[in-house]
Amino acid sequence: MEKEEEHITLNVKDLAVGYSSKKEKTIIANNINFNLYEGEFTAIIGANGIGKSTLLRTLGTIQPSLSGEIDLNDQAIEKYNPLTLAAKISLVLTEPIAAKSMTVIELVALGRSPYTNWLGTLTETDTAIIEKSIKQVELNTLRNKKCNELSDGQLQRVMIARALAQDTAIILLDEPTTHLDLYHKVQILKLLKTIAKETKKTIVFTTHEIEMAIQMTDKILILDNDSNPFGSPKTLIREKSFEKLFPADTVVFNADTNSFKIR
Rank of each mutant, 00 (worst) to 15 (best):
K100Y: 09
L142H: 10
E124A: 12
T116W: 04
L119K: 14
E106W: 00
L155C: 09
M159F: 09
C147T: 11
I129R: 02
T84P: 02
C147R: 00
P96N: 10
I105E: 15
L93N: 13
M159Q: 07
E149I: 07
T127Q: 14
E149P: 06
K88H: 15
P114E: 10
R162K: 14
I129P: 01
K146C: 08
V92Y: 05
R157K: 15
M102D: 06
S90N: 10
P114T: 09
V108I: 12
G153I: 00
I129D: 02
A161D: 00
N148R: 06
D152Q: 09
D152K: 07
L91A: 05
A163V: 04
I97P: 03
N148P: 07
T116F: 02
A109D: 01
L119G: 10
N117K: 08
V104E: 06
P96E: 12
K135E: 15
E106V: 04
T116D: 11
I160N: 01
S133V: 05
P114K: 08
I89K: 04
V158G: 00
E138F: 05
L91Y: 14
I105V: 15
T84K: 13
T121D: 07
L155D: 01
T127S: 14
V158A: 01
S151W: 09
T127A: 07
T103S: 15
T94W: 00
E124S: 13
I160P: 02
Q154V: 00
A161I: 01
A109I: 04
T84H: 05
T84C: 03
D126P: 08
T94V: 10
A161Y: 00
V137Q: 02
W118R: 15
T103I: 11
M102L: 15
S90C: 09
R143W: 08
Y115R: 11
G111H: 08
A128W: 03
S101C: 11
A86E: 05
R143I: 15
R157Q: 06
E138A: 12
I105P: 05
K100W: 01
S101M: 13
V108A: 04
A99P: 09
I160L: 11
V92W: 03
L110T: 14
G153L: 00
D152L: 06
R162I: 04
G120W: 07
T125R: 13
P114M: 07
E106R: 01
N148W: 06
L164D: 01
I129F: 03
M159P: 04
I130Q: 06
S151P: 13
N117H: 08
L164Q: 00
T141P: 00
V108D: 03
L93Y: 03
Q154L: 02
G120M: 07
M159G: 02
Y115P: 12
R143E: 14
S151M: 05
A128Q: 13
S151F: 06
V158E: 01
V108G: 05
M102H: 08
I97S: 04
V108M: 06
E131L: 05
I105M: 13
E149M: 12
R157Y: 02
C147H: 04
V137T: 14
I160W: 00
A99W: 06
L139M: 02
D152G: 09
K146P: 12
